[in-house]
Simulated scan of single mutants.
Amino acid sequence: MARALYVDIDLIHLNPTATYFPQLIEAAVPDVSFYGPGFSSPDLLAKGLLSWIRETGPYEVIFIGPNSPILVENLDDEVIRSTLAYMRDYTAHGHQDSQIVAFFKDLFAVLPEVDIKHRIATSLNFDYYGATDVQVQRLQDWNLTLIGPNEQFVRPLAELPDFVSQEKHFQRKKARLSDCWFDFLHAHPERVVTALHYVLPSEFSHTPIHLRRPVVAVPGVEYHLRKEANVALRRAGIRIASKWYFHLFRAANRLGVPVYGHPLGLHMYNHCFQRTLKTSRYVYTARGGFGLPIRKFFEIPAAGALMLCSPCTGYQELGFTDGVHYHSVEPDALPGVLQELSRTGAGHDVAVAGRKVAANNHSLQARAQQIALCLQALTNGTYRGARWRQGQFFIEER
Rank of each mutant, 00 (worst) to 15 (best):
A346R: 13
Q365A: 12
E222V: 08
P263A: 06
A305N: 04
E340W: 11
I120E: 02
N150P: 06
S41P: 00
V136Y: 00
P16W: 04
N270R: 15
H271G: 01
T344E: 12
D76W: 05
S202E: 15
E299M: 09
V283A: 10
R355I: 10
V32Y: 01
A372G: 08
H95V: 07
A303L: 02
A286W: 02
P16K: 09
V283K: 07
F63H: 04
E55I: 04
N125K: 02
E203N: 13
V215R: 09
P219K: 01
L211N: 09
N67Y: 11
S98A: 14
L84K: 00
S51G: 03
Q370E: 14
T313E: 07
T122E: 11
K47C: 09
A131T: 14
F108S: 01
F298D: 00
D162R: 09
E159P: 00
R88Q: 15
Y245H: 14
T17N: 12
L50R: 02
S342C: 07
Y129G: 13
D183I: 02
E228K: 05
A18L: 14
R226W: 03
D349G: 13
C309I: 05
Q166M: 08
E228T: 01
E190R: 02
R155H: 14
V72C: 15
A372H: 11
E55A: 12
I53V: 15
R275M: 04
M268H: 10
S202H: 11
I395E: 01
M268A: 13
P69F: 14
F63R: 06
L11Y: 03
E396Q: 14
L375S: 07
L185F: 06
P58M: 03
A109L: 10
K227L: 05
P335I: 00
G261D: 01
A236Y: 03
V199R: 08
R287L: 08
Y198E: 07
T56Q: 13
I240Q: 02
H267N: 14
I53H: 05
V283W: 05
A4S: 14
D115C: 04
L225H: 01
R281A: 00
Y35R: 04
Y20S: 11
V192C: 12
R367M: 14
M307S: 07
E330M: 10
M1E: 12
E113M: 13
R384C: 15
A102L: 07
A229T: 13
R239K: 10
I9P: 00
T313A: 12
W181R: 10
L144D: 01
N67S: 15
F182D: 05
A372I: 07
P311W: 09
V221M: 14
R212T: 04
G289F: 06
L45H: 04
N361F: 06
I64E: 06
V324L: 10
A46D: 15
A102H: 01
F393T: 08
L308A: 05
S165N: 05
K227A: 11
A386C: 10
G94S: 11
P335E: 04
I300A: 05
D162A: 14
P16Y: 04
R155E: 15
G385N: 13
C309D: 10
G265F: 00
S363H: 01
A359N: 08
L84S: 03
E299G: 11
P214T: 13
L49Y: 02
R119Y: 08
S33D: 07
L5I: 14
L107I: 04
D8P: 10
A92H: 01
G345M: 03
I395T: 12
D89Q: 09
F393R: 04
T321W: 03
L5G: 07
D332N: 12
